[in-house]
Design a protein around this nucleic acid. Structure first.
Lengths: 340, 340
DNA sequence: AGAGGCTGCGAAAACGTTTTAGTGTTGAGA
DNA sequence: TCTCAACACTAAAACGTTTTCGCAGCCTCT
């Protein structure tokens, strides 16, 4: 086990001062070419690499950013992380991943343990719990300490900071419009409870699209899911009690499970019943039939969020000109809807 | 924006020495209760938190561990990460996620940038590229520097270190046995090329199970996939040219795609044809019909790997008594196989 | 009253680096 | 020969901690 080389070691071995070594390593013009060569050769030989922690302490920069998300076992979030990691690496940053598991407490703890010098900035998507509690003091605290924070996907209006979001209302509007154009009239909606901003916005898009198309809104066609374990039963209820010719699910799971129920009940898809999901995951891609879906471009969202954070870190424009970037969605037509 | 509180600040404000503050914060017996109270009250008031970087430098410990994986957009890997994160957090460590994207070069670069003080140890699953090249110098280097390394899932025999693996051969043996017990005789195998140790081992389990059951091996029933984009065609070829009553896929995607092809060709599942996949992802769960699958317990694997690494970090038993832990698999019977 | 032992605190080193502000030697110009 | 600049290098501070050692002052024994 080789001992770790430090500048100090090199200085001692080469019988020069610490400062000389440091400057030689950075090709400073203060140092003679002879010395530079000597030092760099020695450093290379012994595989010297500057200690990152020492650099961080000196520069007050860690080149680390934290991304705090509710869950990692979700295609959309992993795409976002991929995007973040990709962009961050490109710009010389490392990514520390923290999971809140949808818990307010864990979100707070994670932010506190990270905010003591370990990282330069935060990338955050709020937990359900936090959204419910509407308690954002931990975000305020971090921002007050001067640590940049960029929120993505699950955000709140109560905090002023950079944000990257999907235009959920529009995306959902487009999906419904797509169904209507393809000839559907009675469109069921499977969504989340309203405290998830995403569910609320997507519901709104649904409502607006129906309105603009002159189709009356039927509340009985809207199913709100709180916990995933009630999903199947609520969908069965829907099929038992209502008639409809299309289903829009605010995520791919909802759509796929509904599609399966339709399949079991002998509906022809998409001739008798059409389906659109949200978020282009593996489920949509390999469902039977394959699911038409709203693509959220998670990778791009991650890249953009990372870029916004790092820009703020490096440009340091604290002039609170916070921006909110909207990631466009698109519809990927597959087998579960009729061609327009 | 509040200025960051440091020990130095507190010392100055309270007109005591730096050492006194430090000791007071840790309730040292050297300091009078009066002073302790005074210091702690002040610290709390100004929300003092010790700077992690300074601590890292002093202690030569960062309380960070890196996990380097080939891909994050995979259910199995996200489960592993969840497990790692969970255990690491429990033990007071943060997790830095690095992605190699199956590239040897990125794996090397990631390890080098991490190994300069940023982390205390590595959790690693090898990239395909590295497995192909069989070049492990970067691992040796890291180990030589005295940095603990725990490999999981995709490992190599050429490197001595702690490992956590699935007993792939046995898992696959069990799956095939399951099919045989349920009455299947001609079982197709959809696997990866042999350089992926996982594909190789699972193939071996398949071979052994057939042998032990006295079923002759038919090489034509084995399909090897290299790139995912050739998957569908190779499966179609299989259906075109061979007859069989069961399919075992070495991951869930292979099994699901094959099942879909069977579905399209009108086979009754599982009566006429059975399917088993590997790794209990979302695809298996929501496939139609739901897919019987070998559960790998990724979360547990992550937890165990994290624990092994942290144990080594804290106990510091460098006596090279490297262990290899084997995570047991189990079979989750769903709709795609006949009950035994 | 002197020796010894607590008590409560401070000075300084150490972790590994960069950077600012010198310092000594050399050579050239006056 | 004196001065000044250029050159090549070094000393020391700084980043924020912890920890070892030392040192007063006071008390208690004998």
């Amino acid at each position: 086990m080789k001992k770790k080389m430090t500048i100090k070691e090199i200085a001692r071995e080469l019988d020069v001062s610490i400062s000389t070594v440091s400057k030689a390593m950075s090709n400073s013009s203060e140092i003679s070419q002879d010395t530079i060569d000597k030092v760099q050769a020695f450093a290379k030989l012994y595989n010297y690499k500057p200690n990152n922690i020492a650099l961080s302490l000196k520069n007050k920069k860690t080149k680390n950013i934290a991304v705090l998300i509710p869950e990692i076992v979700h295609h959309f979030f992993t795409m976002i992380i991929s995007g973040i990691e990709h962009k961050a690496n490109e710009l010389g940053y490392n990514v520390i991943v923290c999971l809140s598991n949808e818990s307010f407490d864990k979100e707070v703890i994670n932010m506190e343990t990270m905010a003591n010098g370990s990282i330069d900035g935060f990338l955050l998507s709020l937990s359900k719990d936090t959204l419910l509690k509407k308690d954002f003091h931990h975000l305020r605290e971090v921002i007050n300490q001067g640590m940049p924070l960029v929120m993505f996907d699950r955000t709140t209006d109560e905090i002023y900071c950079d944000k990257v979001i999907i235009d959920d209302a529009r995306a959902s509007y487009n999906a419904i419009q797509h169904l209507i154009y393809s000839g559907c009239q009675r469109i069921a909606l499977i969504t989340t409870e309203d405290y998830i901003s995403i569910g609320k916005l997507r519901t709104q898009g649904y409502v607006n699209a129906l309105y603009d198309a002159g189709i009356p809104l039927d509340e009985d066609l809207i199913v709100k899911i709180d916990k995933d374990d009630e999903l199947e039963n609520k969908i069965k209820d829907l099929f038992d009690n209502q008639q409809f010719d299309a289903v829009f699910g605010v995520n791919e799971l909802y759509a796929v499970v509904a599609m399966r129920e339709a399949h079991n009940r002998g509906f022809k898809i998409p001739q008798e019943m059409s389906f659109i999901g949200f978020s282009d995951g593996i489920l949509s891609k390999y469902a039977y039939p394959t699911l038409t879906t709203v693509i959220q471009h998670g990778f791009e969202m991650g890249e953009k969020a990372a870029k916004m954070l790092i820009d703020r870190l490096e440009k340091g424009d604290d002039d609170s000109s916070y921006r909110t970037e909207v990631i466009k969605t698109s519809i990927l037509q597959r087998e579960s809807t009729k061609p327009i």
